[in-house]
């Protein structure tokens, strides 16, 4: 037992260390290397007002997606669940793209994130209402409501995009693929608050999530009300996903596969899995964005594309090597 625990601690320590190294690397390497011990005026400006907010946004988004993926796969008891399956992201994309193509900027730089957040929140509430029956959430109903609503919103999004030949279209496409290039300080506090609240809720209910995974009856006998816990956890997922989409658009892969990578590495105890998925998501998105803005610099590749390109092979490698596959 002592050996296993020591092993686990070592793994956690390695993951945290790796995260630190990656965040620092993303900050200083970039398209052009900035020597942290010899920073001139213009480099300082680039570090503080361009790179740092961008690293923070990517880490926040990645953490939110990783953590909500881990929670969602638990409450829906489905290994294919990801934060986007609930339609939240399609709702956000719809309102954001309407804002981008309509060219609205009534609140300046926070307009689009705000629109996306409102869209995500409304969709989340709607999906929740659809999945609610007889005083509680039904995992299957939530999933189906999310998928159905997602299709509707995607179709509406495509409709808007196909009838608008405006230049806003290019911007909208970039946003949908996850665009971190405009990340700046103004939206970070809001994103941080919602993601932190969602994260704390999910961590504090991790034990209940462990029970939920075992089934409703077992969790009853363990002293957790499945209805109540599912409701609380659903809210935490909604907050984190909405804030993440609002910060920088849609990033695929992380929410679906990072929790599985986490399970391969440290097992499926939610108390560890949620923070590890969060860190893993943050690291992956951070690296992906670093690569995306550096390889073809100054051309920038959307982070969402790079995330899947570097994440998927690693996931497949783990899938081949490990034999455990459970939620």
């Amino acid at each position: 037992m002592g050996q296993v625990e020591r092993n686990m601690k070592l793994k956690l320590f390695t993951i945290i260390l790796a995260a630190m190294v990656i965040f620092a690397a993303a900050l200083f390497i970039g398209p052009k290397f900035i020597n942290p011990f010899n920073v001139n005026g213009i480099e300082k400006e680039i570090l503080i007002s361009i790179r740092l907010p961008r690293v923070i946004v990517s880490v926040l988004m990645g953490m939110a997606l990783g953590a909500s993926g881990a929670v969602l796969q638990g409450i829906l008891r489905n290994p294919l669940a990801d934060p986007y399956i609930l339609g939240i992201s399609s709702g956000a994309a719809l309102t954001a793209v309407v804002g981008i193509i309509g060219g609205s900027a009534f609140l300046g730089i926070v307009t689009i994130p705000l629109l996306a957040f409102i869209g995500a929140l409304i969709t989340g509430i709607f999906v929740g209402a659809m999945g609610w029956k007889k005083g509680g959430f039904w995992p299957e109903r939530l999933l189906l409501a999310g998928v159905g609503l997602g299709f509707l919103f995607s179709a509406m999004l495509m409709l808007i995009m196909s009838i608008s030949s405006d230049e806003g279209l290019r911007r909208a496409t970039l946003w949908i693929f996850g665009d971190l290039s405009i990340a700046d300080w103004s939206v970070i506090p809001y994103g941080l608050v919602f993601i932190a609240v969602g994260f704390i809720i999910s961590i504090s209910r991790a034990k209940a999530l462990n029970a939920l995974i075992l089934g409703d009856e077992l969790s009853h006998s363990l002293g957790f009300s499945p209805r109540r816990e599912r409701f609380i956890l659903f809210i935490s997922v909604g907050l984190m996903t909405a804030a993440s989409v609002a910060l920088g658009g849609m990033i695929g892969f992380i929410g679906l596969l990072i929790p599985h990578v986490g399970r391969f590495l440290i097992g499926s105890d939610s108390r560890v899995l949620i923070p590890v998925s969060a860190l893993g998501g943050g690291m992956l998105l951070c690296i992906a964005d670093l690569i995306g803005k550096s390889v073809l610099s100054p051309m920038e590749l959307p982070a969402g594309i790079v995330t899947a390109i570097i994440g998927a092979p690693y996931f497949l490698y783990l899938l081949r090597r490990k034999d455990v596959l459970s939620i």
């Binding site: 400006e45 361009i50 100054p298 051309m299």
Partner: peptide, 16 residues
Amino acid sequence: PKIGGIANPSLEAVVS
């Protein structure tokens, strides 16, 4: 010197 695309110019390239 290039600063990226039209819809996605690189802020960092411009500032530097």
